[in-house]
């Protein structure tokens, strides 16, 4: 297996799926001539030409809606948002059109589209460019939400997302594009949506983490191992549909749960997971479920404040120690 970056893994997935299916095309701001704001689409214009790799004006609502319409008529668009912050302009088309079309047409029009791009914090880009929006999108039935944390997951999940017949919100993380990992070279390599991955096995406490929080949680688990606390780290990888079974089974084993997320706490994914665990594994809990989340404030600019707003290893370690009564 080759060791490549998440950026390269995403690029491979796009290229392979575009080779595989003529109906797949790529559209977004700076995806073609500029080679991608984060270089994820590097080289694709050269290979697939202007018809299939399309630079858009800065009109998120317009091109998102155009993508949904193209999907209604049988194409499989991959729409890049330069960051998911800008997808907020397009939410009418994502939520009112893409998520509901199959249902309100009584099953006649499915929307095979992928909206992808970086989500969450970057480095000192302040309030309007640092938002983690997964709980927004995961709220709506009709949409799938995917968040990879490794190069292999990024590739396998993006390929599955493009092949999926439903709208998929595919959320990358700017801070992680350069993270490297082993990736299978097989062109048929895919990872099914809706299946969590146990990134580390353990018995004393479960940590559920996604995207940027996965490497942080793994570091925390290493730290805790030294303190004789064995942590299981679960990456759901897909937020909707959520593989809650894997989480419940782990909690039944460890009796303690910490959920780490970069997003704001209120009405977040961690809140949803805690509710499910409370409903389905209450009798197995030895401590209240503990959330470790981004600060409940807009993202500040100053480096020190930004660091305070994003959960780190220490917060996760402390939370695990708290639920393990150490």
């Amino acid at each position: 297996m080759a060791v490549i970056t998440i950026r390269e893994a995403l690029n491979q997935a796009l290229a392979e799926e575009m080779r595989r299916d003529e109906n797949v095309f790529l559209m977004g701001e700076e995806v073609a001539a500029y080679q991608g704001a984060y270089k994820v689409t590097k080289g694709l214009l050269q290979e697939f030409g202007e018809k299939r790799v399309i630079d858009t004006p800065i009109v998120e609502l317009g091109f998102a809606g155009l993508g949904v319409g193209a999907a209604m008529a049988g194409l499989r668009p991959v729409v890049e948002f330069m960051t998911f912050n800008f997808s907020i302009l397009a939410t009418d088309q994502i939520i009112n059109s893409a998520a509901k079309m199959l249902y309100m047409s009584g099953g006649q029009f499915n929307i095979p589209i992928v909206f992808r791009g970086p989500n969450g914090s970057a480095f000192q880009v302040s309030s309007q460019h640092s938002q983690a929006l997964e709980s927004w999108y995961a709220y709506f039935p009709g949409i799938k939400v995917v968040m990879p944390s490794t190069a292999a997951d990024a590739k396998g999940l993006l390929k599955s997302a493009i092949r999926d017949d439903n709208p998929v919100i595919f959320m990358e993380q700017e801070r992680m594009y350069g993270n490297k990992g082993e990736v299978p070279e097989d062109e048929d390599f895919t990872i099914p949506l809706g299946v969590a991955d146990i990134k580390r096995e353990g018995k004393d406490a479960t940590i559920v983490a996604r995207s940027l929080m996965v490497p942080v949680a793994l570091k925390a688990a290493e730290e805790l191992e030294k303190q004789d606390v064995s942590c299981e780290v679960i990456d759901p990888r897909t937020i909707r549909p959520l593989d809650i079974e894997t989480i419940i089974n782990s909690v039944k084993k460890t009796n303690r749960l910490v959920i780490a997320e970069e997003s704001h706490p209120f009405c977040g994914v961690a809140a949803e997971i805690s509710a499910e665990v409370m409903e389905r594994a209450f009798d197995y809990l030895d401590a209240p479920v503990r959330r470790v989340t981004g600060a409940d404030v807009p993202m500040p600019y100053a480096k020190n404040l930004e660091n305070l707003a994003i959960p780190g290893v220490k917060q996760i370690v402390d939370a695990v120690r708290e639920v393990a009564y150490i």
Binding site: F282, D283, Y284, L285, D286
Partner: peptide, 13 residues
């Protein structure tokens, strides 16, 4: 106080 035992669910079970 008040006679309520505070006990985690798994411990109770």
């Amino acid at each position: 106080d008040g006679g309520r035992l505070v006990v985690s669910p798994i411990a109770a079970r």
